[in-house]
């Protein structure tokens, strides 16, 4: 876990450069104002987990970071580049550092597993077919998917689809990887498998990770920072430990709702027992 310095922005890890910065990002879809001034910083090599109730706009934040959605107001900077000002080619240059695991894996359903993972290599590099094969097989082995190369997405289980999606996201050794609800729809053991793969690959590749998840509190174990999105703004962005003990009423309500009541000290807990 990270060390934090006392700066004007709470919980800024020392000695870390920001990989992604959102400043006062607002977004409206029709009459619905989804984001109302989101401020968020993701530091290089760290893991930010965004939590919040369904429909609050967590995925919309990720889409802003990916440049898939433009903010109505505010700026989104990735490695210092303002995504609103970089143009199409500049955006592509920034996206070359991205890997994304979508909620439903977003595999190309007319391609088999091998071709899905090979696609970024075929389209964005000049690798020979032999190099592509070796690279893809390496990633499939890492995801324990060797032997499934010829299968199509429709023939895979939910967990396998996620692993193929992760293999594809990592095949070009990205600097930032986005995970949109990586374990939704998976049972506990499959979820744990995805988390283990995430942990292992992050250790190996050292990428920055942004995770949108509902899997509280398990997801806290992977996080360096946890941000709560509610009412269109980031209520708090803290270390997992500080997040769980926060006094901020919205955070407190979220923690109690998702994790049950937490006690700051043995004395507090004992006090409650005495009352009972």
């Amino acid at each position: 876990m990270s060390d934090f310095a006392a700066t004007s922005e709470p919980n800024v890890p020392t000695g870390q450069e920001p990989a992604i910065e959102l400043r006062d990002v607002c977004k409206r879809f029709g009459r619905q104002e989804v984001l109302r001034g989101v401020n968020l910083t993701v530091f290089e090599g760290r893991t930010l987990v965004i939590v919040g109730a369904s429909g609050q706009g967590k995925s919309v934040i990720i889409k802003h970071m990916l440049g898939l959605v433009r903010p109505d107001r505010g700026t989104v900077r990735v490695f210092g580049q303002d995504l609103n000002r970089v143009g199409r080619r500049g955006l592509d240059d920034v996206r070359r550092h991205f890997g994304v695991l979508f909620q439903n894996a977003a595999l190309f359903d007319s391609m088999n597993v091998f071709d899905n993972v090979a696609l970024p290599l075929r389209e964005r590099t000049r690798c020979s077919e032999a190099e592509i094969r070796s690279n893809v097989e390496e990633k499939l082995a890492l995801m324990d998917l060797l032997g499934s190369e010829e299968k199509f997405p429709a023939q895979l289980s939910g967990g396998m689809r996620k692993r193929v999606g992760l293999a594809r996201a990592l095949v070009l050794k990205p600097k930032i990887v986005f995970f949109d609800e990586p374990t939704t729809g998976l049972d506990v053991s499959k979820s744990n498998e995805i988390y283990r793969l995430f942990h292992r690959t992050q250790q190996q590749l050292g990428y920055t990770a942004v995770i949108v998840s509902h899997d509280v509190p398990k997801i806290f174990k992977l996080a360096d920072q946890v941000a709560l999105l509610a009412d269109g703004v980031i209520q708090e962005c803290l270390t997992p430990e500080a997040f769980q003990l926060s006094d901020q009423p919205v955070v407190r309500a979220f923690v109690e709702e998702t994790m049950g009541r937490l006690y700051r000290s043995d004395a507090e807990e004992e006090g409650l027992y005495e009352k009972v």
């Binding site: 996206r95 070359r96 994304v100 979508f102 977003a106 359903d109 389209e123």
Partner: peptide
Amino acid sequence: GIMRNSEQIDALECMAIDPYRY
């Protein structure tokens, strides 16, 4: 349309693959 609905087009864009070209 199905590619749009299942985020496959978003996936292409995120991989810096121009969907218009590809």
